[in-house]
Simulated assay, not measured.
Amino acid sequence: MGKSWKKTRLRLYNAYFEPTFTTEQNIENRLPGIDREHWRWFLDYRAKVETKEKCRKNAKNQSKQLYTHTGGSKSFAWRMDEESEQQGRRVYYYKRIEEIEQQDESSRVLSQNDSIAQVFGKEKPGRVRGVGFEPTPSQLFGPNSHAPGNGVQLKETKRKLLELQAELEGEKLKRKAMEDEAAAEKKKMKAMESSLI
């Protein structure tokens, strides 16, 4: 807002001030809508020796400037702190992704539960992290993008599920056999007890 006001004042001064006019002529030559007394005060301010000297110095200093400062109001130290903080977060995220990928090779495959999704959290609807703005989850993962992963990962997940179910059935059979054996041993013990009595 300050820059805009400064440019407007300069534009008005350059457009409506004539150095060859008298003060009264310049006051009458103002933009319609500007108060007569405000314009007089502005012209008096611009006519002061201190103001002219300040303008001359500023113009001279501006001409020496080779590079435009675009960093805003933050100091370099503040920016360096922020940068080192961001760098620390990046290193942490990279390490977490590496750990997850070492533990589970399938997390490297692009899916809705890949290593990146595990580190950064659930993806926002309608986009896929790391592949730009264009592809949507349904384009990459199929129409039912709520199901985890792509076709390859889905097959792998189903295979593992079947293996685990078979293993569970095997464990159930072993447990039943052990229970039956324990029941038979219990009967033997009772039979021995009753024969001793």
Rank of each mutant, 00 (worst) to 15 (best):
Y93L: 08
E105I: 12
S106K: 00
S73V: 14
A59I: 04
E83P: 02
R90D: 14
R108M: 09
Q102W: 07
E85D: 13
V109I: 08
Q62H: 06
K74T: 09
Q102F: 05
S106C: 02
N61Y: 15
N113M: 01
G72E: 02
W78D: 08
Q87E: 11
E85I: 09
L66I: 14
R108A: 07
K64H: 08
N61E: 15
S63M: 01
N58G: 12
Q62R: 15
Y94E: 08
R89Y: 07
K95I: 07
Y67T: 11
E85K: 15
V109A: 00
D81F: 13
E101R: 10
G71N: 06
E83K: 15
Y93R: 11
E101P: 04
E83I: 13
R96Q: 05
R89T: 05
H69E: 11
R96E: 02
R108I: 01
Q62M: 14
R90A: 08
T70L: 10
Q102E: 00
R90S: 05
S63V: 02
R79I: 14
S107A: 09
G71K: 09
T68C: 07
G72P: 01
T68P: 02
T68Y: 14
Y93Q: 04
K64S: 03
E85C: 11
V91H: 06
N58I: 05
T68V: 13
I100V: 06
L110C: 06
E105T: 04
N58D: 12
A77Y: 12
S63I: 02
E105W: 01
R96S: 02
S115Q: 00
G88C: 14
Q102R: 08
W78Y: 15
K95A: 10
K60A: 13
S106R: 02
S75I: 03
V109L: 05
I97Q: 01
T68L: 14
R90Y: 13
Q103H: 09
L66Q: 12
S75D: 07
G72Y: 08
R96C: 00
T68M: 15
D81H: 09
G88S: 12
W78S: 15
G71H: 06
Y92D: 13
R90E: 06
Q102V: 06
Y92S: 10
K60R: 13
N58C: 11
N58L: 12
H69I: 13
Y92L: 02
L66W: 10
E101Q: 08
M80D: 15
Q103A: 10
I97C: 05
Y94R: 11
T70W: 14
S115R: 04
T70M: 10
Q87V: 04
E82Y: 12
I97T: 00
E83R: 13
E82P: 00
Y93W: 03
Q87T: 13
Q102D: 11
Q112M: 03
Q112T: 02
E98W: 01
R90W: 09
F76I: 05
A77I: 06
A59C: 07
Q102M: 08
G71L: 11
A59V: 02
Q103G: 03
E82T: 09
A77D: 14
E105A: 10
E83H: 15
F76Q: 09
L110F: 00
G71Q: 10
E98V: 00
T68S: 09
L110A: 00
T70S: 10
V91E: 08
E105H: 08
Q112L: 01
K74F: 10
M80S: 12
N113W: 06
Q62K: 13
E99I: 01
I97R: 00
